[in-house]
Design a protein around this nucleic acid. Structure first.
Length: 302
DNA sequence: ACACGTGTCATTGCGCAATG
DNA sequence: CATTGCGCAATGACACGTGT
């Protein structure tokens, strides 16, 4: 089925990974040729239509249909739900029919070679006071250290893009210390865990994980008994992660990260200015401070 | 006083690509 | 070639200035 906005979304949305959602949605509409044709025309208006067509060519819905049948459900229709939180983590919602003729919705969370299941703000883990102190230290200590390191290692600022620095690791490590210190004080752990594990999705969802040449289907997403949230422990894990443990078993991990890099260029990659003001200029390039607390990446362990 | 545009921050969504 | 640190896009809330 198509909502009023569906075709427009398909033509214009450029969120990362949307190509895969569009391709699978297109294939699912095979039993609605008229709608599928409209979707095709919408895809043709995309700048990356070639890529979408490529994905369509190697995508078969067979695996999904079979899994539905094994569950006693018959596929009937699908809707395109990108960026719609109302349906939980699903990007596409399938309308199915059970043996008694009753409709049941099952969502598909569609991903391409990444394990992040949710982005969460660091503010759920540390206090405002901790954030203020860290922000202060960021501007006074870490940014100067970063500029010095990058200059020495990579030269002009135009060469800094996507390059790594130990300064970033140090700042992230300090944020992780703050998370560990504050963990006993975090109040709403059940709600937090429910959120992290999508344990209260309004619609059951399956995970479609694309790799090269196809996808894996997971009809039983990994989760924990969120009622035991107060027993969850946190520890540092690798360079930038916080790992979550229940009964000493790692059940998930979360990357503490800057949303758009340690520092942000004041121009997006299309060359558009992002802000009026900038925090500093390096080699004639405008930069703004980064966002260390937004968009941490949470992944469920398999 | 209030509507309206502009600018910024915060939140959430997602994959890419440097690195070893 | 897998990891894992780095980065891009959309959107809602809110503050603030300007015009009516």
């Amino acid at each position: 089925m198509l909502y009023n906005h569906t075709l427009n979304d398909i033509s214009t949305n450029t969120n990362t990974g949307v190509e895969f959602e569009i391709a699978l949605f297109y294939k699912l509409l095979s039993n609605k040729p008229a709608e599928q044709h409209q979707v095709k025309l919408a895809i043709d208006r995309r700048h990356d239509r070639k890529k979408v067509e490529e994905i369509i060519n190697y995508t078969s819905t067979e695996k999904i249909i079979r899994a539905l049948n094994a569950r006693g459900l018959t596929y009937k229709d699908a809707s395109f739900e990108t960026q719609n939180d109302e349906v939980g983590p699903a990007d596409v919602v399938m309308i199915t029919v059970d043996k008694t003729g009753k409709e049941e919705k099952i969502g598909l969370s569609i991903k391409y070679s990444n394990t992040c299941t949710l982005n969460v703000t660091g503010r759920k883990f540390i206090t405002d006071a901790q954030i203020s102190a860290l922000k202060d230290k960021y501007a006074r200590k870490y940014v100067p250290a970063y500029r010095e390191y990058m200059k020495k290692e990579y030269g002009d600022a135009e060469n800094w893009h996507r390059k790594k620095s130990p300064v970033t690791d140090q700042m992230i490590d300090e944020i992780r210390d703050a998370v560990l210190a504050n963990w006993p004080n975090v109040e709403n752990k059940v709600a937090l865990m429910q959120n992290l594990f999508h344990a209260a999705s309004p619609i059951e969802f399956w995970v479609v994980n694309y790799g090269r040449g196809g996808y894996d289907l997971k009809t039983v997403p990994s989760t924990i008994d969120v009622r035991r949230a107060k027993d969850v422990e946190v520890r540092k894990y690798q360079t930038s992660y916080i790992a979550f443990y229940l009964d000493n078993v790692r059940v998930g991990h979360m990357q503490v990260k800057f949303n758009n890099g340690f520092i942000e260029s004041n121009f997006n990659h299309k060359g558009l200015r992002k802000k009026q003001s900038c925090d500093f200029v390096e080699d004639g390039l405008e930069f703004n401070y980064g966002q260390p607390f937004g968009s941490w990446n949470f992944s469920v362990e398999d």
